[in-house]
Design a protein around this nucleic acid. Structure first.
Lengths: 176, 176, 176, 176
DNA sequence: AATGAATGAGCTTTCATTCAT
DNA sequence: AATGAATGAAAGCTCATTCAT
């Protein structure tokens, strides 16, 4: 599963062949359709689920020990910058890699929406823990996700993680 | 060219076949490699160039008549929201569609970086016009691009353009 | 069994998947090879047997109450025309569906020959009952089978059962 | 083309793989879809056309020099018996091999109907030449096709061409 | 005795590209 | 300069069958 997730993120959905995934994972060719009767679509969705779970864990690790929301968000951006560095700058946002599939698969869009919402909800839970109202928390979490998502895209184009580390300053500008 | 750009944005790089593009544009099959000796790669880059030029025009239209930077950025987000709506929710960010190609084409990343920079520079020029310093303008333009890019991704997952119209409030929070 | 026979007749041997048959009949997947150790080949033969038994019953029903051979043959053709109509033009001759398998299964040909002979023998028995000699009966039964088989093929191509009802006039032309 | 036609007749539509045809004909794999953009379906139809043309020639050869319709039909049956023998008893009626495809391809049935009609028309033209009325000729030609088709099927099951040579006696019984 | 998980060969088709004209 | 016919690799997927339980 982790092999599939990595390859999908690295190459995108269409550029990743099933045989590539299978040879990477060592599994036999015919077995895939037992575990994933929906074939490549089902496998890609499961891979995105798997990676989203990992992102939720990163969120919890970032916000858990933080003294306030701002510190948690900053930790989160820095953790993603590190993740970007160790993955050799080649990994796309796992959910976006799913999203960028043809429009004929509306299920993909629906699934991507649900996964983004999982991330937003995870962040919002921490925001509420730090005293925000429900509306404030939802707003702040969405803003963080949007910023992180856009920052990751720019970092990818530049093949440098600096942008990720610049995000907290953009999110929380100092007021003169 | 506009046909190619639209198809790449709609389906992504790998999901768009050359024959699909050629039959859409009515061009003869064999002559593509005379106009684009690098084949699909060169065509995709040219298509991204073409769309980037269109985005620069949108930026100029948004910021040109605006009284200040904040108003220009707001106009820009609203124009993109309208663009999202009239393209029936099927359009990816044209540059991202390029980005999500395999790592075997590093030229793609380099080209995507240059295109993003063109957008940033266009925005920064307007920012300077409104009195910002060079450093401030570059910073503000990057932030706007990051936000717009992330917002577009979330809008695409939700198949609703609302997120785009919520971006100005996130970029310019009111201070109590 | 009736599910398998119907599917084989509808789609042919190779176009009918074992999983299709098993899911239609509700039987567990692995147990097929206990009932039919020869797998798909054995199942198809048993299905053809089952259908042949049904055809023998139709022959007996057609000839049993008939006053003479000609009337019996006519009834038979009309019964087959009705069968063609109620099966929505999708049924091949069940034995032919077997026949049209690859030459690597010579057992199929042998089996098909035996099944055709069962039908011929059933018709010949009625012919003898109506006073024909053994040789006459065998000859008449073969002719009827040949005509019915060819008529069914043409009816299938035309998707109309009319040909079947025209067969008696071809078999028993009025002498001026 | 003749390779494809033979293989389809020998093994049936579904049991004949495209790679089998291509390796038999020596053509490269990718070229097939230039000559037959509809793929296997188009190839099978063209193969059936090709063989039908051959059957029309056999009909003309049989009826051309014949003194009357009965002699022409007899020649035709004997020519088919010889064809059966030299094709090693393994060849199906080429049109039937087409016909026995899944019902999802209504185009196949329509095409098979047209091909059968070509054969009937060819025979009927000769029948008219021998003095039959239009109605008589059509009727006689249909009867001959039906008989030949059914006879071929039985001959195939028995792996002996005797049935084909017995058809004239069935078509033109001597009146005592 | 009975089963469902597991398999690898094979399927048809699409692909970006080349090259003789 | 311009082209469409031609191509081999690879794609995603289905298949009948096996076997440990």
């Amino acid at each position: 599963m982790s092999d599939a997730a990595l390859l999908f993120r690295k190459n995108g959905y269409h550029a990743t062949g099933l045989s590539e995934i299978l040879s990477a994972s060592g599994l036999p060719k015919g077995s895939l359709y037992h575990y994933f009767p929906d074939g490549k679509v089902g496998l890609a969705m499961a891979a995105a689920d798997w990676t989203t779970t990992g992102l939720v864990r990163i969120i919890d690790d970032a916000f858990g020990p933080a003294p306030d929301y701002r510190a948690g968000a900053t930790h989160y951006c820095y953790k993603l910058a590190r993740l970007f560095d160790i993955s050799a700058h080649i990994d796309a946002c796992p959910i976006s890699a799913l999203l960028f599939d043809g429009p004929e698969n509306m299920a993909f869009r629906t699934h991507a929406e649900a996964l983004f919402q999982r991330l937003i909800d995870s962040i919002a839970a921490h925001a509420r823990r730090f005293g925000m109202s429900d509306a404030q928390a939802q707003q702040a979490a969405e803003t963080l996700l949007i910023t992180v998502e856009g920052g990751w895209t720019l970092a990818r184009a530049r093949r440098k993680s600096d942008v990720m580390r610049s995000l907290p300053a953009r999110l929380f500008p100092s007021h003169p």
